[in-house]
Amino acid sequence: MKIRNILIRCSIIGILLMCLSTAFISNHAVYAAEKASSEVNGGAVINAEQTEWKYRVVDGKLQKRLWSLTYGIWLTDWEWV
C-alpha cells in the first residue's frame, strides 16, 4: 500500500510540474516572438490606426464619414452613399 501511495503522489507531482513547465515555455515563446518583432522594427511597436464609419440621413439620403478612433478626428468629409 505504501508503494502505491508513493507512486500516486509522484505521478501527481510529475503531472503538475509538467503543466507548470509547459506554461512557462509557452509564455517564454510568446515573449521571444514579441521581442523579435520589435527588434525588426527597431524597437518601435507599430499599431494600425483604428477607424469607424459614421452614418447619417440628410433629406432622406444616407451619408457616411470616416472617424479615426485612434486620433479622435474626422478623416473624410461626408459622402453620399
Rank of each mutant, 00 (worst) to 15 (best):
M1S: 15
K2R: 15
K2M: 09
K2H: 09
I3Y: 08
I3T: 14
R4C: 11
N5F: 06
N5C: 09
L7T: 10
R9I: 05
C10Q: 13
C10L: 12
S11K: 07
I12T: 14
G14I: 06
G14W: 09
I15Q: 03
L16G: 08
L17D: 06
C19M: 13
C19A: 15
C19Q: 12
L20I: 08
T22G: 13
T22Y: 05
T22W: 05
T22V: 14
F24L: 15
I25Y: 07
I25Q: 05
I25H: 01
N27K: 06
H28P: 00
H28S: 07
Y31K: 11
Y31F: 15
A32D: 06
A32V: 07
E34H: 05
A36L: 11
S37V: 03
S37W: 10
S38A: 11
S38T: 04
S38D: 07
E39L: 12
V40M: 04
N41W: 08
N41L: 14
N41G: 09
G43S: 03
G43H: 02
V45S: 12
I46F: 09
N47W: 02
N47V: 06
E49Q: 14
E49A: 10
Q50S: 10
Q50R: 09
T51D: 11
W53D: 09
Y55N: 10
Y55E: 14
Y55C: 02
Y55A: 04
R56V: 01
V57S: 04
V57N: 12
V58F: 04
D59P: 01
G60M: 01
K64P: 00
K64C: 07
R65Y: 01
S68F: 01
L69M: 13
T70V: 10
Y71R: 15
Y71N: 12
G72E: 03
I73G: 00
W74D: 08
L75W: 05
L75R: 06
W78Q: 09
W78M: 05
E79N: 10
W80L: 13
